[in-house]
Amino acid sequence: MRVVIDGALIGSQADLHRVLAGPLDFGPYYGHNLDALWDRLSRDIERPVKIVWENAEVSRDRMGDEAFEAIASVLIRAAEEGEPNAPDERLTVRFT
């Protein structure tokens, strides 16, 4: 699965959670916070998944560095955790 995030539409953490929750099927009980995002990305989603955050700098400008880095670090950490897995069992993240 490939999920594309249009950074021009992301101005808050809440926006990002909404964009990811649907395509990744986080379910109705998803907590819409960074801990819940980590739980879903590290354990619950079916792989392979490629997340591409286009216009990431636009999101950073709109959200602020601290909020953007908090989300980006969760995405990157979840991807790094799966690096030892076979390619068809990985989560990958790319910022453009």
Rank of each mutant, 00 (worst) to 15 (best):
D25F: 05
A72T: 05
V4N: 08
A67Y: 03
V4M: 08
I10D: 03
V49R: 00
D25M: 11
R62E: 14
E46D: 10
P28H: 11
E46N: 10
R94P: 00
W53Q: 00
D88P: 09
P28R: 13
N85P: 09
R77P: 00
L34G: 02
L41N: 00
V49I: 11
D39G: 02
R43C: 11
A72K: 08
L9M: 13
V74M: 07
T96V: 12
R90F: 05
L20T: 08
Y29R: 09
P28M: 10
G7M: 04
E54V: 03
R90N: 06
Q13L: 13
G22Q: 11
F26D: 02
F95I: 09
L91Y: 05
I45P: 00
T96E: 14
A72C: 07
A79F: 09
S59Q: 11
D39P: 00
V74S: 06
D15K: 08
E57F: 05
A8N: 15
W38A: 04
E66S: 13
A78F: 06
P23L: 10
A21T: 11
R40D: 04
D35K: 01
L41G: 03
S12E: 13
R77M: 06
S42T: 14
L75S: 01
E89P: 06
V93H: 01
L16C: 11
L91K: 10
G82Y: 12
D25H: 15
A79S: 15
K50Y: 04
W38V: 01
A72M: 07
I5W: 00
F95E: 04
V74P: 01
E83F: 08
I5Q: 00
D6P: 04
V49P: 01
V4K: 07
P23M: 13
A70W: 03
D39R: 00
R43I: 07
A36W: 02
P87Y: 08
R47F: 08
V52S: 05
Y29Q: 13
I51G: 00
T96C: 14
P28Q: 13
G27S: 14
R94S: 02
D6N: 15
D35I: 01
E66T: 14
D15L: 09
V52N: 03
G11V: 14
D6Q: 13
G27D: 14
G7V: 02
L24D: 02
E66W: 06
G27W: 10
R60G: 07
V19I: 13
